[in-house]
Design a protein around this nucleic acid. Structure first.
Length: 1095
RNA sequence: AGUCUCGUAGCUCAGCCGGUUAGAGCGCUACACUGAUAAUGUAGAGGUCGGCGGUUCAAGUCCGCCCGAGACUACCA
């Protein structure tokens, strides 16, 4: 027996199937039944369980699940080791806020030990919720034995990787310009800088300084700054290559000295009024307003300025290499300032980079160990070398001063004829969120991976990766690789993987530890040298690891560099660290690297996708993954980002509970390409449920209803295909085409196309054509071979569809598959997920047949539309339709499906109209594809000429297969192929067209047709009565009907037909019906009838 | 600011190498059908294919610029 549930309830199916999977270990079996030598390697990008799962996680995981399931069904062994990302700033910040502490309190109010314990507890806080959503959404991943990034074994593998890089000389200590809070004494992450309220409007003194061009008396570059305190650190000026610059002759407004200043032409208007050859110095000393000038004495492009030298503005410190040159940079604009950018490599990120590019040194002073540092110390004060301002804070850090350093510097510049202009300037400036004091951009020590040296190789290897979509790989990712900077590994935090590097205090000697064993050996050495009793800590995290002291080869004490490493390195290490490679599982690793497939959100492009790729390239000279799908964002239905604040976040648990996991998954995949952003609309899920799952469910229950009545259990031998009716062969052909295409789409990482094709098949072909046209085969007559063929055909379709849809909708497909298979035991798989993905049988694909049926569908549709136009009920049989014949083959094709069409539209015959009848009217159009290329400019004229052709011209072209076309003196020899000739009108008839198809309908109704029409009406009414009286489908009846001029002929001529259709054993015409009911028939005919149930 | 994606009917999306009536589903309206019935069919309304310019005989499709939405990265001297 097939199950016949009362209605479609996807949530119930979810529950039932989940229980089944768990009880029968279907996931485990689906992996284990496949050969280990035939693996498809998947890497799970580790989520962080310290936040609740969102609907976008359902999206990302659906994509992962689809391809793993597909490959698994296709015969691959697909192990899916789960993982958890456990380190990182978000976790630390969460713990800080829950404990009500700040970073400064760590190690003071709370020990590092306790703090890290708190992190470790927090990090898995929502693990249960994650496990729950994983289960409910049907995502198959092994969560019993996941990799966890805080485990010692994981850390050890990461250390090993770092050691490989260290040995390749790819780890170095340098500095970068980072946001730094002198008040808090700590660097700030970009996350902290983006906290609300961090940027505040403040009023600063801005200055335009005059940098004297080397070798001139009075020529100056003008450069603007809002941070005059960085001027002593200036070592370069930067201009834009294509910006126009001018040299302006005039006077300094403060000193009255004659000067020639260089600035961007576009910025002139901001500082100068008009030219005045007779200008006096007094006229410019009036104040801060724009001033007049004498004349523009020269113009040049920025590129012409490149390499020019100037004199140091404030010579407190001498640079170690040649400096004070004009550079060209692409970041220069003329929106503010002078179009010339003051460049201080120690205090600006742009400055740092451009200076590096030109080998311009930063201004540095040496500390007690001879290590270089900037002119401002970590408290935000000028170092003593800056004599005039030594010890003064460069920004407001609570000191009470009459004038700021900026103001004093401006005064000094004024006095020395080095200032062009100064004014107060309001701008938004970042502040430390803890101390509320201004942030400085400050050079901070960091450990780097020399990723830039592997840039070319990464770029090369990237070309071998199959990106979905391709543009992310070539564009976003490729461009990023092209401009790759070194990877800043350092994080000054507590909860993360400690950098395994120990250094001597002077920084001259260092050791990188690559394993626990190494560490043990080094500890022994140190113990011996220093007389200590250290052991390898049980937990490799801080603070225990910090307590370990090692010794250099010459016996000097070494301390661990206190940094942690970037968490992105953690997750990028997972291909190795998940197996504790190389300390364990060498074989396992070898068989699972690189991955065949990974998938994450597009926001991981420069995150996980990059770190995986970078580490694999640098350490193993290999890609880490061969195929990668990056999905877009899940937005709300209006296209806005989902957020708690807006209250538009969709709860994945609610959604799955209300709509079922399958409808949710199917909607997400079918609605838009996964790499496009998804506007997530619950109504869309509902539509998918009704339209697709509802239709498929209806088809199944239709099948189940009749198969149960007939006890069809697929026990009979397969009816040979050539003995099945055309329509069976057609749907089987289409099914095989579908199998072929859907398999290819999955294999090609195109899930959206796969789902759309399945939907189209189920809706347009299987349900609305095959089942609709074949209904009678299921309900009528005996258990004949034709009926068995129908059952077998529909069964095959349903069972195959279950397999095709299984990767996307694992629950419903399994429900469907098992309902079918349990009744027939046709296959020995207990779940669809243990079955093999169908393979198309090319021999069953009959393109001519598909074409034929397509004609049938389209002709039927045209006839129905004509009936509609003519107000002809479908129940009223009509004599014939007229069909112009396109070519001989066409007529043959249509003949093949004639019966289907005639039955479908209730017509008696098709009359073919060929040319010879002479009543067709043809239309001619040029074939633009063939002609356009040949005619070129004459195409337009040709189209006009061809458009004006009459029936005779067309007839001639068709008979002679040639035409001479002359345009503007050129003559072209054309053949029939150069035209598109169609028949779209039959004079005197109502016609309908669809592309090349044209149909006319004969609406003449003879008495006999009328009687037959009435007979059909009667059948319909009697059936309604049967139904309204709840008769059994198999009950026989007897019928009494009143005589009536319109009704009597129908009963007389078509009585047997009526009886057969309604299972009536008798049909009597009587003068009056006792206790009957009134029937309303077309044309206002009313008669009484009595229907009796016979048992 | 750079890089990338997207912009086609009220909504969600197709539209292949450029080729002449720009499609589907949903929604809406009307009609039909009724042994799949909380299903189905047919028809109608609804489009300056984001804008401007270019290439071409021909542009929704190729190129450039601009506008709008979004993502990432960097930053504002």
């Amino acid at each position: 027996m097939y199950k016949e549930p009362k209605g479609l309830n996807l949530s119930e199916i979810d529950k039932e199937i989940l229980q089944f999977w768990e009880e029968h270990k279907i996931f485990e079996k689906s992996v284990e039944q496949r050969d280990a030598d035939n693996a498809y390697v998947f890497y799970e990008g580790p989520p962080s369980a310290n936040g609740k799962p969102g609907i976008h996680h359902v999206m990302a995981r659906t994509i992962k699940d689809i391809f793993c399931r597909f490959q698994s069904m296709s015969g691959k062994r697909v192990e899916r080791k789960g993982g958890w990302d456990t380190h990182g700033l978000p976790i630390e910040l969460k713990v800080e806020s829950e404990l009500g502490i700040t970073k400064e309190d760590i190690g003071k109010k709370i020990s590092v030990d306790d703090y890290n314990k708190a992190c470790r507890e927090t990090v898995m806080r929502y693990k249960d919720l994650w496990d729950d959503i994983t289960r409910k959404m049907g995502y198959w991943v092994d969560l019993d034995d996941p990799y966890i990034t805080y485990k010692n074994s994981y850390i050890e593998s990461v250390w090993w990787l770092l050691k490989q890089l260290y040995d390749k000389d790819m780890l170095y200590k340098g500095y970068t310009i980072q946001p730094y809070s002198p008040a808090a004494g700590t660097g700030l992450s970009s996350h902290e800088l983006n906290m609300p309220g961090a940027y505040k409007d403040i009023k600063d003194v801005s200055a335009i300084a005059q940098f004297k061009v080397k070798g001139t008396e009075n020529e100056y570059f003008l450069a603007w700054t809002t941070t005059p305190w960085t001027l002593p650190s200036n070592t370069a000026l930067t201009v834009g290559a294509n910006i126009d610059y001018v040299k302006v002759d005039g006077y300094n407004r403060y000193t009255g000295e004659r000067t020639q200043v260089i600035l961007a032409k576009d910025r002139m208007a901001a500082y100068f009024t008009e030219a005045n050859p007779d200008l006096k110095p007094e006229e410019v000393k009036a104040g801060n307003k724009p001033i007049p000038y004498i004349a523009i004495v020269a113009e040049m492009k920025g590129s012409e300025l490149e390499g020019m030298e100037y004199e140091q503005l404030l010579p407190y410190v001498v640079p170690e290499k040649p400096a004070f040159k004009v550079l060209v940079g692409d970041f220069v604009t003329t929106e503010d300032g002078t179009g010339i950018v003051h460049t201080a490599p120690t205090f600006g990120a742009d400055d740092f980079r451009i200076a590096q590019k030109y080998d311009i040194p930063p201004l540095m002073v040496k500390d007690e160990f001879g290590n270089p540092g900037p002119l401002v110390d970590k408290q935000g004060r000028f170092v003593e070398e800056v004599t005039d301002f030594a010890g003064r804070y460069v920004k407001d850090y609570g000191q009470e001063e009459e004038r700021s350093v900026d103001e004093d510097i401006v005064i000094k510049l004024k006095q020395e004829n080095k200032l062009f202009h100064s004014e107060k300037y309001v701008h938004s400036y970042p502040h430390c969120w803890r101390t509320d004091r201004p942030v400085l951009y400050y050079p901070l020590d960091s450990w780097f991976i020399k990723a830039s040296s592997a840039k070319d190789r990464m770029f090369e290897l990237n070309k071998t990766i199959n990106w979905k979509p391709a543009s992310t790989g070539e564009g976003r990712f490729g461009k990023w690789l092209e401009n790759l900077q070194d990877w800043n590994l350092s994080r000054s935090r507590y909860w993360g993987i400690p950098l395994p590097i120990w250094r001597t205090e002077d920084g001259r000697q260092a050791k990188c530890i690559g394993s626990v064993e190494d560490l043990g050996k080094e500890i022994e050495k140190a113990n011996a040298a220093l007389g200590l009793d250290q052991t390898v800590p049980a937990d490799l995290h801080r603070p225990y690891i910090d307590e370990i002291t090692l010794v250099a080869d010459d016996g000097t004490l070494m301390k661990r560099e206190l940094d942690l490493i970037d968490v992105w390195f953690d997750s990028g290490s997972m291909p190795y660290a998940q197996w504790h490679y190389p300390f364990e599982n060498q074989e396992k690793f070898k068989n699972s690297f690189p991955a065949d497939f990974i998938a994450e959100g597009v926001d991981q492009t420069r995150g996980w996708f990059y770190t995986l790729h970078a580490i694999a390239t640098m350490v193993f000279d290999s890609v880490a993954y061969k195929n990668v799908v990056s999905n877009g964002l899940v937005l709300d239905k209006d296209g806005r980002k989902m957020s708690k604040r807006l209250g538009n976040a969709v709860d994945p648990f609610e959604t799955i509970k209300n709509y079922g996991a399958d409808a949710t998954r199917w909607y997400m995949i079918s609605n838009a390409q996964p790499w496009d952003n998804l506007k997530f609309d619950l109504d869309g899920i509902d539509e998918v449920r009704r339209k697709f799952f509802g239709t498929l469910y209806n088809t199944y229950s239709f099948f189940a209803l009749y198969a149960n009545i007939d006890k069809f259990e697929y026990k009979e031998a397969e009816v040979p295909l050539d003995q099945r009716p055309e329509i069976d062969r057609w749907i089987i052909s289409l099914l095989n085409t579908l199998v072929k295409e859907v398999g290819a789409e999955y294999a090609n990482y195109e899930p959206t196309n796969a789902t759309r094709k399945v939907m189209n098949f189920v809706d347009a072909h299987l349900s609305n054509w095959y089942v609709r046209l074949c209904r009678r085969r299921f309900w009528r007559g005996d258990y004949t071979e034709d009926k068995i063929a129908a059952y077998q055909t529909l069964y095959t379709c349903l069972s195959t569809i279950a397999k095709l849809m299984a990767p996307v909708s694992p629950f419903f497909s399994d429900w469907l598959y098992r309902n079918l298979n349990e009744a027939t035991a046709k296959e020995n798989h207990e779940s669809v997920h243990l079955a093999d993905f169908p393979k198309a049988d090319e021999a069953l694909i009959d393109k001519a047949l598909e074409q034929r049926m397509d004609y049938a569908q389209r002709i039927s549709s045209l006839v129905l539309s004509l009936r509609k136009k003519e107000r002809m009920r479908v129940r009223q049989p009509l004599q014939k339709i007229l069909l112009p014949v396109l070519d001989e083959d066409f007529q043959k094709q249509v003949e093949g499906v004639k019966d289907l069409v005639l039955a479908e539209v209730n017509i008696k015959e098709i009359e073919y109209l060929s040319d010879t009848t002479g009543i067709l009217k043809k239309r001619i159009k040029p074939n633009f594809k063939t002609l356009g290329r040949r005619l070129g400019k004459n195409m337009k004229a040709a189209a006009q000429i061809i458009g004006k052709m009459g029936q005779e011209d067309i007839a001639q072209i068709e008979s002679t297969n040639s035409y001479q076309l002359s345009i503007n003196g050129d003559t072209y020899e054309l053949t029939v192929d150069d035209f598109e000739i169609t028949t779209d009108d039959i004079p005197g008839w109502q016609v309908a067209n669809d592309g090349p198809l044209t149909v006319a309908l004969d609406v003449t109704i003879t008495d006999e047709l009328l009687a037959e029409g009435m007979a059909r009406e009667l059948v319909n009414r009697i059936q309604n009565i049967r139904k309204s009286k709840d008769f059994n489908v198999t009950d026989n009846i007897s019928v009494q009907l009143e005589r009536h001029a319109e009704v009597t002929p129908a009963v007389e001529q078509f009585g047997d037909y009526i009886k057969a259709e309604t299972l009536a054993t008798s049909l009597e015409l009587v003068d009056t019906v006792e206790n009957g009911e009134e029937l309303e028939l077309p044309d206002e005919v009313k008669v009484n009838i009595k229907v009796k149930q016979l048992t």
